[in-house]
Amino acid sequence: MRPQSWTLVPLAGGANVQDLARLADLADLARPARPAKIWPVADRAAACVAALPSMTVIDGGAALAMRSLVKVFDGLVAVDGVDLDVPAGSFFGLLGPNGAGKTTSLSMAVGLLRPTRGRAFVLGHDVWADPVQAKRLLGVLPDGMRMFDRLTGPELLGYQGLLRGMPAGVIDQRAAELLDVFGLADAGRTLVVDYSAGMKKKIGLACALLHAPRVLVLDEPFEAVDPLSAATIRDILSRYVAGGGTVIFSSHVLELVERLCTHVAILADGTIKAVGTLDEVRGGRGLEDVFVATVGGRVATGEELSWL
């Protein structure tokens, strides 16, 4: 199935004022749909890259844009031409089964993994051609990456701030606030390596937020997090989006995505299968039904595993 290109459709009923205001901002983003011809991956990528203007700043409206991202590992295609625009000010959920290429796509979009082909932009700055500018605007919580976990929480935040080149006074003040809000202030001199899984996610998120980025990219922020911590994270992210930030996160938890997100994309087999506002993608059904139908899951009939 060919990835559906992202076109903005007027929001269905239930759109609030905020959504409409965002719509006005994003009006220039609407592009004509590309021809429905199915191109081989290489051609598609080449054509898309060739069509880009040579300057670094494009697509002023999208907070994060992926253009024909392709990743091939040892001849195995993990991501097969992902095109995605994350509108500025959106709370964007990236869904997909295990091995769909979520982490790979996000890693390429934030500059951790070099794409085989394609480009990525943060507020118009090319992540791979102009990394310093792009990364200044980005806050990232990667999945499967360790932190410098033999530091304590405060030390880790101090380190993150110094790496970002922030003044010491600002670092101290923000670190104290973040530790307080995330409930990590009591952990004191405990090393991050001794934190629980939920605490690790929270300190990782605090690191991503410290320099007040414009765009947050979170890979599985709710994985292994207890309901209490999840609620904290949810509140902080909602407040961040309300304040004008953009969040894109990957998740398996469909209820959470349904509750939080303004926009959703479903990724499977390395391509985008569905994308749009939450209501567009749902089309009046539940998100889980749409997800299973789109991804093509298998339902147990009761015949198998009879020996259990």
Partner: peptide, 14 residues
């Protein structure tokens, strides 16, 4: 793990 609250700023801790 060391217990007790950390003192001073984050940068000074590091």
């Amino acid at each position: 793990p060391g217990r007790g609250p950390a003192r001073g700023g984050a940068v000074d801790a590091l």
